[in-house]
């Protein structure tokens, strides 16, 4: 009952062009049926994400560990709430990040859980920068 060959093949890596995404905007792409949020973060959002005391977080992880160095403005996360799988809404909630409408979990501008029932940060999918304006997810 595990995924069949065609499902696995359809889950191959995809390339996303980032050049049309302006600062402060984000886009949602689907990979393996999951929504992936790609946020072009503002300076303010980056500073907020880095000013937090990492040890005080429910799921401690530094912002540096969640983005690619040299591309700090880009946050790529799987937009599935780690509580029960709803899709959080970008640019909502008290932490300049994501807010899940189902059970009220709030994530910050680094996709880390800050408040609510979710146990973990929004996961970062495997991805790499092919060029400065293009990433490959998967």
């Amino acid at each position: 009952m595990n995924p069949d060959a065609s499902t696995i093949a359809a889950g191959a890596p995809i390339e996303v062009d980032l050049s049309p995404v302006a600062e402060g905007q984000d886009i949602k792409v689907f990979w393996r049926g999951k929504p992936i949020y790609i946020s072009h973060r503002t300076k303010k959002q980056i500073d907020e994400a880095r000013a937090v005391n990492v040890a005080s977080l429910p799921d401690p992880q530094s912002d540096e560990a969640r983005v690619k160095s040299g591309h700090e403005q880009w946050l790529v996360v799987i937009g599935i709430c780690t509580h029960l799988g709803c899709i959080p809404i970008a640019h909502e909630g008290s932490y300049d990040g994501f807010f899940c409408p189902c059970h009220g979990s709030q994530y910050d501008s680094s996709g880390r859980i800050r408040q609510g029932p979710a146990p973990a940060n929004l996961p970062v999918p495997p991805y790499q920068f092919v060029s400065d304006t293009k990433i490959q997810i998967g």
Partner: peptide
């Protein structure tokens, strides 16, 4: 969960099973 879904998210294989 992957076994239940038959994929990477709830989708057609899930509906079928």
């Amino acid at each position: 969960v992957t076994l239940l879904w038959g994929g990477y998210s709830v989708g057609n294989p899930t509906l079928n099973r």
